[in-house]
Amino acid sequence: MREPNQDQQTVEKPILASIRGRGRGAVFVPTDFLEFGNRKAIDVALHRLVKKGVIRRLARGVYDFPKEHPVLGELMPTAEAIAKALAGRDHTSIQPAGAYAANTLGLSEQVPAKAIFLTDGPTRSVTVGPQTIQLRHTTPRNMAAAGRLSGLLIQAFRELGKEHITPERISQLKKKLPIEKRKAIVKDIKLAPAWMRPLFYELAEDA
Rank of each mutant, 00 (worst) to 15 (best):
T139V: 12
T127H: 14
D120S: 14
G88P: 06
Q110K: 13
P77Q: 05
P96Y: 03
E80K: 00
P140V: 10
L105K: 01
M143C: 07
V128P: 14
K84W: 04
E109D: 14
E80R: 11
E80G: 00
K84E: 10
G98R: 09
P77T: 06
I82Q: 06
I133W: 07
T127W: 12
K84D: 02
A115D: 08
Q131D: 08
A144T: 03
I133E: 05
G129E: 14
R89C: 05
T104F: 05
H91R: 14
G106L: 14
L75M: 12
T92I: 00
A85R: 03
E109Q: 11
P140G: 14
G73I: 07
A87C: 11
L75W: 05
T104S: 11
P96T: 05
A81S: 12
A101S: 04
Q110N: 09
A102I: 07
G106I: 13
A101G: 08
R124S: 13
I133L: 11
R89D: 07
H69W: 13
A81H: 03
T127Q: 15
R124E: 12
S108H: 05
D90A: 11
A81I: 01
P140T: 12
V128A: 07
A144K: 12
G106E: 15
H91A: 02
P112R: 04
G121V: 06
Q95C: 14
A102P: 06
L86D: 01
T78N: 08
E74L: 08
K114R: 15
Q95L: 12
P96Q: 04
S125F: 10
E68R: 08
L107V: 09
G106D: 13
A85T: 02
Q131A: 07
I94T: 03
A115Q: 09
T139N: 12
P140D: 10
T132E: 15
P122F: 03
D90T: 06
M76H: 11
E109P: 15
H69Y: 05
R141S: 10
Q134F: 09
H69A: 13
R89F: 02
G121S: 03
H91S: 12
P122D: 11
